[in-house]
Amino acid sequence: MIPLIKAFFDSATWTISYVVFDEPKGSCAIIDPVLDYEPKSSRTSTRSADKLIEFVNQQQLSVVWILETHAHADHLSSADYLKNKLGGKTAIGNNIPIVQKTFKAIFNMGEEFVTDGHDFDHLFADGELFQVGKLTAKAISVSGHTPADMAYQFGNAIFVGDTLFMPDIGTARADFPGGNACQLFRSIQKLLAFPPETRLLMCHDYPPANRSAEWESTVAQQLAHNIHVHHGIKEDEFVTMRNKRDVTLEMPNLLLPSIQVNIRAGKLPPVEKNGVAYFKIPINLI
């Protein structure tokens, strides 16, 4: 069954969130939703998430899943807010405990934060099938950018997270804690082994000045034109390029706050005795 897809582009973080559904008045999954965050004031808002809610309600959809492709480092997730408003199960790849353990140490999080993935309702294994109404979906492990990256296939469409970008932008970085350029290359090859006409939907686009934001390509287009992994690129070439390039990249603006939310499935840090929640910022560590 061909999925119906509605994309929502957030220009503040260059993120694309999706509602994937079988039919109007049917069932849907929400993928990579954004919680708006103003870093200067450290205030959150739900403007982007409310657009998803409005669409879901207009289409009279029942939310079955709220899917994260990985623990994002460039935007905060609104998964918990959406779950409370619309229902559905939050889910991510089953390697998320590795990411949680890494960042628990970096942020010196307390014993109350248990790194077993239980903050999410479900942890997907590679190749696991699941239902969204009449749609049968498949989770595909695409580790490399982080250990827990997961792509989601719905019929002829695959939501690739940060693994791939549009062909003129290339591929994800692999220098975050637990990232691995060799594994990233092999994960990309899994995606590019699908039929040429397979639709690949991005989580981000960082467009050059000569075009507006885009978020959909095909396997054929990636193989022909991706500046990092087109036809003929070998693993050692890619790894050399990726490692050399990654050391020149700045950390994402929202890395420190976003990770603290996203490894908790979109929940903010616990409120302290004074009724306020706080982000922790390590000094001279990252």
Rank of each mutant, 00 (worst) to 15 (best):
G93Y: 08
T198P: 06
V229H: 06
L201V: 12
A139S: 15
Q153H: 07
H72Y: 08
P24K: 12
I158P: 01
S258E: 08
N94Y: 09
N57W: 00
A49P: 08
D50E: 15
I281S: 08
L249M: 14
E54P: 00
E111H: 11
S141D: 15
S17W: 03
L67C: 07
F279M: 04
L52G: 06
T171F: 06
T44N: 10
M241Q: 11
G26T: 05
E216K: 11
G133S: 11
L200K: 03
A209R: 04
D80N: 14
E272T: 13
K280H: 15
F21V: 05
R211C: 05
N253I: 05
K6N: 05
A91E: 09
Q183L: 12
G144R: 07
T171C: 14
S187R: 07
L268W: 14
Y18E: 01
D22P: 09
D50M: 10
T198K: 04
K25E: 15
I5D: 01
F8Q: 06
P33M: 08
F130M: 03
G88M: 08
Q153K: 15
A220V: 02
I16N: 06
N262W: 01
P208E: 06
Q183K: 14
L4I: 02
Y206G: 00
K190M: 09
I227E: 04
A220I: 02
F103K: 08
F107L: 10
M109A: 12
V56K: 04
F238K: 02
L52N: 05
H145R: 06
P195A: 10
S78M: 04
G275L: 02
L164Y: 11
A148H: 12
N274R: 02
L61N: 08
L192V: 02
A174K: 05
H122E: 05
S42Y: 07
L67R: 10
K40E: 12
R199Y: 01
L201P: 03
K244H: 13
H118N: 09
N253W: 03
F279E: 01
A73Y: 11
D168K: 04
N57H: 10
A220T: 01
I259T: 14
M251T: 13
G155P: 06
Y37L: 08
F176Y: 14
S11N: 12
S143T: 03
A73I: 10
V160A: 14
E38G: 07
T44P: 01
T198C: 03
P147G: 03
P270D: 13
L184W: 06
T163N: 05
